[in-house]
Measured scan of single mutants.
Amino acid sequence: TRVETATETAWISLVTALHLVLGLSAVLGLLLLRWQFPAHYRRLRHALW
Rank of each mutant, 00 (worst) to 15 (best):
V3S: 04
L48P: 08
L20R: 01
W11K: 01
V27T: 10
L18V: 10
L30F: 14
L22H: 05
T1L: 12
T5R: 03
V21T: 14
A6E: 02
L33H: 01
A26K: 03
S13H: 05
L14W: 04
S25P: 03
G29L: 14
L33N: 00
L33Q: 00
L33S: 06
V21D: 01
L32Y: 08
Y41I: 14
E8G: 03
L24I: 11
F37Y: 12
L20S: 08
E8R: 01
R43F: 08
S25W: 01
P38N: 14
G23S: 06
R42P: 06
L22G: 13
A10S: 11
L32F: 07
V3L: 09
V27D: 02
A17Y: 05
L18W: 04
R43Y: 06
T7N: 14
H46P: 08
T16I: 14
P38E: 12
G29E: 03
T16F: 07
A39F: 11
Q36V: 13
R42S: 13
A26H: 04
L28H: 00
T7V: 12
R43W: 10
H46N: 12
L24F: 12
P38G: 10
L31G: 06
T9F: 07
L28Y: 08
H40G: 11
A17W: 02
L24N: 05
G23P: 07
L32A: 14
H19C: 15
E4S: 08
A17S: 09
V21H: 07
A39E: 15
H46D: 10
H40A: 14
I12R: 02
T5K: 02
W11M: 07
H40Y: 05
L44N: 05
H46A: 15
V15E: 00
Q36H: 14
P38Y: 13
W49R: 02
Y41C: 15
A47K: 11
R43L: 07
Q36M: 12
L30R: 06
L31N: 07
Y41E: 06
T1I: 13
V21F: 14
A39Y: 10
V21L: 15
L30E: 05
L32P: 08
R42F: 07
A10Q: 13
L20V: 13
L14S: 04
G23R: 00
R34E: 09
P38D: 13
R34T: 07
Q36S: 12
A26F: 13
I12C: 06
H46R: 12
T7E: 08
L28P: 02
R43Q: 11
R34F: 03
A47D: 07
L33E: 02
R42Q: 14
S25M: 05
L30D: 00
P38R: 14
L22T: 08
S25K: 02
T9I: 09
T16M: 11
I12Q: 03
A39W: 03
E4R: 09
H19I: 15
T9A: 14
H46M: 08
T1W: 09
R2C: 08
L44I: 11
L28A: 03
I12Y: 10
W11Q: 03
A26I: 08
V3W: 01
A10L: 08
A10E: 13
A6I: 05
E4N: 05
L22F: 04
L14K: 10
Q36R: 15
L18E: 01
R42K: 10
Q36D: 00
L24T: 00
L48E: 10
H19Y: 15
